[in-house]
Design a protein around this nucleic acid. Structure first.
Lengths: 169, 169
DNA sequence: TCAAGATTGATGCACCTGCATCAAATGGGG
DNA sequence: CCCCATTTGATGCAGGTGCATCAATCTTGA
């Protein structure tokens, strides 16, 4: 049961690793050069701003962002430290809490989307036709599901047509 | 000059980020569970083992692996600490040095390739036909070059047909 | 009702990374 | 020949991540 991967598969693997890290680097660099915090902050702010009343349980955020629990916990710490979100206790479950995005948080999210969307266009959009982007998405999707177990909840749909919303990573 | 990315491009971006990180995680997990060190070690050992006499200047390694200088420096530290490589002074340029892979290093690289190739097959090869893998590679290549400036030196060609060699990330 | 187990969130530790900077050595132009 | 810019490699520091574990609370089932 140890079939070797084909050269084609191996080559795709290498490119997937290389290209992703290069493109991500470029985008993160652009954001940083524009004076913005890391993309993870954007993702969190976006999830929060999308939530019904601008607040989520950390556990929800964790599931949306597909990052580990402790990582969520500390990300929230940083957001709170910067005044971008605030913690609120949860009356019905005293273990838990709510994290609520602040006005500053909403505003930063919107400003970041300007730089972020420009970077996506620069490093992805301008390199591929829409048709090719769709092909690429399709091929990637075939890899994405079921690593070990899969559960992609109703996670972050892209939604860039209304010219105000924005994607998450 | 701030054209917004299409939904298609944005969606491809999101998937690129998500899928890569999931697949990479899976592969790294498999390696770790098999008791092996991180993939970066493998990449370094592979580059060294491929070099003419099993040794490279750190600068070369850095260029091959596309990682920053300090990262190379510390990776070499760890390899040396574990007896997988050794530093040799460079007579002709006293600033520099050579890093030479040891027998243990060569052996580890080969053993890792067993687990590594199995993981590639499991998470990539088995999910795509060879034809689709080629399509994916092609689409990714269109993104990969020229982030800022590009220089992909004669970097790591995939070469899994001879059943003993192996790829780098 | 109550003890055992599950869930929620925080945190100490080790390690890894990026950034800035350093020292040593080289090499080239005046 | 000498000074200065460049190349090569190391390292202190701040921050981020994974792992293990903890305390508090909730839930379940006997």
């Amino acid at each position: 049961m140890k079939r070797k991967p084909s050269t084609e598969a191996t080559s795709a693997w290498i490119r997937l690793m290389r290209v992703q890290s290069r493109v991500l680097d470029c985008v993160e660099q652009d954001l940083k050069k524009a004076g913005f915090p890391p993309l993870a902050w954007y993702d969190a702010l976006l999830e929060l701003s999308r939530a019904p009343s601008g607040e989520l349980r950390p556990v929800e955020l964790e599931r949306q962002m597909l990052i580990p629990q402790y990582s969520t916990s500390r990300l929230i710490d940083r957001l709170v430290d910067e005044g971008l979100a605030s913690r609120r206790e949860c009356k019905i479950d005293k273990r838990g809490q709510f994290v609520e995005i602040t006005e500053a948080g909403r505003e930063l999210q919107k400003r970041m989307w300007g730089a972020y969307s420009a970077a996506i266009e620069k490093y992805v959009g301008s390199k591929l036709s829409d048709a090719d982007a769709v092909k690429l998405s399709g091929l990637l999707d075939r890899l994405g599901c079921s690593c070990g177990e899969m559960k992609l909840p109703p996670v972050a749909q892209a939604n860039a047509n209304t010219n105000e919303t924005s994607p998450s990573r």
